[in-house]
Write a protein that binds this DNA or RNA. Structure first.
Length: 295
DNA sequence: CGCCTTTGACCAGCGC
DNA sequence: GCGCTGGTCAAAGGCG
């Protein structure tokens, strides 16, 4: 239940997030994994994938997701030793059309130069920013997942600075916007709670880190630990990756309807690792259902 | 003192 | 064309 907002009833009004919703179903296969992950800055060894396979063959194909997610939330899940339900997600795509409109935004950084960010404004130059008129905001690769946690901001090995918060329509919980504190890094992430299940935190990452994770000044564990944990936490799901278009079949292997209705691969993975540090509560809570969405 | 959070306003994209 | 909503900016305040 929790994990799913059954039937096309997106928790947080994803449907509305045009830009975040899929521009087209993009999944990628294992081949892409590493690259994808790499793009996101989640550098994991191939073993991770294998590890995953070993743990749950069913997810083998989705190892990518697993890895990626694990890099982020998986760690926590693993650490916390909580249940992990993997489930791909995708917004029902409306097909090509939608793809055309919103997906167009993710045009690789070419479009713009200025847009990218270099910038003009002090802090915000990040890539996907709203630049001048006429210039579209550039979307970075994104993926989202749901985590069961009491804390909104889950630690993932990087330092984030909150730069905004907005009330979400149809949800009593606000959505927070974070940006990587590394000046050279343009990664951003959004954090919001499911309106249906407050215990679920929906985190969406955008962009890729161009640096290594860092320790937490304020305490917490470091990336290594998280990464390690991630290996133990195979969560599966599929990635929606804007830049990669996968074969239809693949993208439909777990179709949206399933996803939305929560019927899908709701596999529960029980990470045996409990490498959790007492202070890690904030560390990516318990991954509930990773949802990779395009962007 | 530096960094981070909060918060209101502004702007752009999208749907109707 | 208009209105709504999402996303971002930037000033102010708080905390370590």
């Amino acid at each position: 239940m929790d994990d799913d907002r059954a039937g096309g009833d997106p928790p947080t009004d994803f449907s509305r997030e045009g830009s975040w919703s899929l521009g087209g179903d993009y999944f990628f296969g294992c081949d892409r994994e590493s690259s994808i992950l790499g793009e996101f800055g989640w550098n994991l060894q191939p073993e991770a994938s294998r590890e995953l396979d070993r743990i749950d063959p069913n997810f083998a194909r989705c190892s990518t997701a697993s890895v990626a997610e694990s890099a982020v939330g998986g760690a926590a899940a693993a650490a916390a030793g909580q249940e992990v339900q993997a489930r791909p997600v995708g917004k029902p795509l409306s097909n090509d059309q939608s793809a055309s409109s919103s997906s167009s935004e993710d045009v690789p950084e070419k479009s713009t130069a200025s847009g990218g960010g270099s910038g003009g404004k002090p802090l915000s130059d990040s890539a996907s920013k709203v630049k001048k008129k006429g210039q579209k905001r550039i979307r970075q690769p994104r993926f989202a997942f749901m985590t069961k946690s009491e804390v909104d901001h889950l630690e993932d090995g990087y330092r984030w600075r909150k730069y905004g918060q907005k009330a979400v329509k149809n949800s009593p919980y606000p959505r927070s916007y974070y940006r990587c504190t590394n000046t050279k890094c343009i990664v951003k992430k959004r954090v919001e709670r499911s309106s249906e299940d407050p215990t679920i935190v929906i985190t969406t990452y955008e962009g890729q880190h161009c640096h290594h994770t860092v320790g937490f000044p304020r305490g917490g564990l470091i990336s290594h630990e998280a990464a390690f944990a991630s290996h133990l936490c195979p969560s599966a799901s599929q990635f929606y990756y804007p830049g990669v278009q996968l074969p239809r079949e693949r993208s439909l292997s777990i179709n949206e309807s399933q996803v939305l209705s929560g019927e899908t691969g709701k596999s529960q993975l029980l990470p045996q690792a409990s490498h959790q540090h007492p202070a890690d509560e904030g560390l990516l809570g318990d991954m509930v259902s990773p949802r990779m969405r395009n962007v």
